[in-house]
Design a protein around this nucleic acid. Structure first.
Lengths: 211, 211
DNA sequence: TACTATACGGAATCGTGATTCCGTTTGCAA
DNA sequence: TTGCAAACGGAATCACGATTCCGTATAGTA
């Protein structure tokens, strides 16, 4: 949503704003920052620090801030990337042979990318705002809805499930994955399968109405 | 592992250390701080601020700190209280008529107290250390184990469930309860029932082994 | 090669919230 | 009622991490 540069003198061609090409080093540093941030946030979660990102990217803090005005913006960029992967997976499972397995695999995938990225878990577990933006950007809601409907038509997914339950499940799983320590660590795949079992048709009792 | 106090002069009676009785105002303030903290943390989660706790208790910050050396200690006290309630509920369900309903009700209860206390959710979702201490203190592990075994003996709970899965489920639910916003808010009871469905015997596929 | 708009680095600044300090007040025992 | 240890209040301090600022360096161009 960047303000277009207004041209007073020649209204006709005003909308065509040409961004002056970025300098090569700027482009290089931009990539380095993203790569470093990806790594750090994946390892340490959302409270990885900006100065550390800079260090990891072999760049000064100022440079990080020239490319991303705030820590939040940097995180948003990272999250957008992950959600694209999620959407891609959803589309893929939408044409899978078995609609039920499609749903299962999508949820397994959602759990797995969170297992691989603590930052993503943190976002799913404590930044619903960022999550919603990212999800909306890739139309994940629509995709989840189709995934659900398809599996319900084939009679394998319980009919009282609604697509809104899907992100809820995904977030719940995510929050556990990195919180669990001690005897609980590494148990998350069990939870995934447990929930999937609960999702199967017909379901033993009607789920409570939302709200 | 605290170092024992060495007694040089009179070995015989030294161990009997009598705490000087607390002054009345101190006792009163202690209670006020706990009450205020309980309210604030329940409403705002773990990042409620110490100065606000003091204000709410109509007390200076210094007083809060005389009673609880750190914010962490204050939180631990609050958490201990909640876990006692949990343990109590577990004991109650352990003698319920229906073992399966015992498990269900325990998990529903765990979800509900978290719904009523955002601070507790935060602890379950991001402070496994505090949680473990509190759980150990009331032997929740033992209780969960008995709850699970009993329902498995009666054939209603899937046999491959282990007690270690219980806290995992409880934490997962908790993290969702207060994170969910927008269309997701208020949906958590559905998740609870979904999971309970997944817990029922026999379970359609063997759960993956932990680790 | 010289010039200048872009970019860079990283020390200094700012904001926030936990924790400390110390002068004052108060419960209560003699 | 007096004396004083136990408590209090809350301003000041500290710690930590995001963000800003500005002097310096450099890619790209004439």
């Amino acid at each position: 949503m960047k303000a277009l540069q207004e041209i007073e003198t020649s209204p006709a061609d005003a909308p065509i704003t040409v961004e002056p090409a970025q300098r090569a080093d700027a482009r290089r540093n931009h990539a380095a920052v993203i790569a470093a941030a990806k790594r750090l946030f994946a390892d340490q979660g959302l409270d990885a620090q900006m100065p550390d990102v800079a260090k990891a990217a072999k760049v000064g803090v100022g440079t990080v801030y020239r490319h991303f005005p705030t820590k939040e913006a940097l995180i948003a960029a990272l999250v957008a990337d992950r959600f694209e992967r999620l959407a891609e997976k959803a589309r893929e499972e939408l044409i899978a042979a078995d609609p039920w397995e499609g749903v299962c695999n999508f949820l397994r995938f959602a759990a797995q990318i969170q297992a691989d990225d603590r930052g993503l878990c943190d976002v799913m577990g404590s930044r619903p705002d960022l999550m919603d933006d990212a999800a909306r950007a890739v139309r994940l809601d629509k995709l989840a809805d189709e995934l659900v409907k398809r599996a319900q038509r084939s009679g394998q997914l319980r009919p009282d499930l609604e697509w809104e339950d899907i992100p809820l499940i995904a977030c719940g799983l995510g929050s556990i994955i990195h919180t669990a320590v001690g005897p609980a660590a590494g148990r998350w795949p069990r939870l995934v399968e447990l929930v999937l079992d609960g999702l199967q048709a017909p379901g033993s009792a009607e789920l409570p109405k939302p709200l």
